[in-house]
Design a protein around this nucleic acid. Structure first.
Lengths: 219, 219
DNA sequence: GTCTATAAAGCGATAGAC
DNA sequence: GTCTATCGCTTTATAGAC
């Protein structure tokens, strides 16, 4: 801009060499997420990724060992995003002031409808993990902690301490239900109305409560 | 057909020209299903598919317009397999003699654990459809009928005629739940025990019954 | 109808200039 | 640290022999 402060190393706009490289890395990761989502792992070329980030192929190879490592880095850092988003909404008391099931349902429909790359990338991650035992175990390990987080929050909200299955198993069912509904909605919007997410969750919890009561009365 | 009959057009072993070509087509489709499942749409080469079928690339192009048409033919003919399998098991009175939920759950876990290509190909179909609007609408259309079939069978089994949502919507939730559980089980077997399929289905139906009763009592 | 051989294009990855 | 140019390999699809 001006001639006076144009060197100013501590100005917020000017980036140091390390910062510049970190920013390039981040832009490449962002572009990779979008490109992998739209074209798939094999369908996305490193040229397309670099181009989407506004860099050349050389810049990509200066920051990542190759296409596979770039993909795996994405998988490790973003695969549990859906679970964390769900946990976040359950944790927010203001949003879940009404029915937590409705709030969670509405939030996830919004997320899935708005960020269309999300579920595509998620499916790409799943396929890659299902085909590569090593990555599969890594993904399983990485999903464990956020699932436990969701389990604790669901447990809190339900307030029933003696369910017939462990809390993490309930969380598994909730996640499976949501992932399945999001995927079906993507193919046929009309067959999966937005309210269905909260509705199905209420059915699930009502049935779980009933079984919990029955087991308590038996003993 | 022949002058004497020594070509025996109705003998089981000798294949007519048309039959031979039909057999080649079928073998190629089978090999394509397996290869697409293991490598993905872009990852699977036509050479690998032809080789898996025991033919050359030329034979493949003599039977299909190309890789994409081969994939789309598979998608049209096999995408609704999961729904039909579920419907079939619900229709079989002998198998569902006990709890239909348990029977359905056990059957689908067996199917998913045994035919490992099934869910991979299903995911590959979903991704392709989600990325191509034309194919997406085709898939949505093709899923409608089997879903209605499942809906009718679930309705029969439940015997509750006045659910708060249409029967096809209940079928949608059931399918979403199963697909989600199958996928999670594929990544982390330990987190999705086989009994969970039937258990979750029972919770769902119990909650649905409860809401049905409440609505009836209100009016 | 199926084969082999090959054309034309695209890919991941590397080398060297700046 | 990023760019341009290019290598070597694989891909889809076609042509011609049989």
């Amino acid at each position: 801009m001006s001639s006076v402060d144009y060197v100013t190393s501590d100005a917020p706009k000017r980036l140091s060499r390390g910062e510049a490289k970190a920013r390039t890395r981040e832009l490449l990761l962002e572009a990779a997420a979008s490109t992998f989502a739209r074209k798939g792992f094999h369908g996305a070329s490193v040229e397309a990724i670099a181009e989407a980030a506004g860099f050349s192929i050389g810049a990509l190879y200066a920051n990542f060992a190759g296409k596979e490592q770039l993909f795996l880095e994405l998988l490790s850092s973003r695969a549990s995003g859906q679970v964390l988003a769900a946990a976040e909404i359950l944790h927010d008391d203001d949003v879940t002031a009404g029915d937590p099931a409705d709030a969670l349902g509405r939030f996830l429909v919004d997320l899935a409808d708005k960020d269309t790359d999300f579920s595509l990338l998620q499916a790409e991650f799943w396929l890659y993990a299902a085909r590569n035992p090593g990555v599969r175990d890594t993904l399983a390990e990485r999903m464990r902690e956020p699932r436990e987080l969701l389990a604790r929050l669901v447990e809190e909200r339900r307030g029933e301490p003696e369910a017939p299955v462990p809390p993490s198993t309930v969380a598994t069912v909730v996640l499976a239900l949501f992932q399945g509904l999001v995927r079906q909605r993507r193919i046929d919007q009309g067959s999966v109305p937005p309210e269905l997410f909260g509705q199905a969750l209420r059915w699930l919890f009502a049935g779980l409560d009933e079984e919990t009561r029955q087991r308590r009365d038996q003993s």
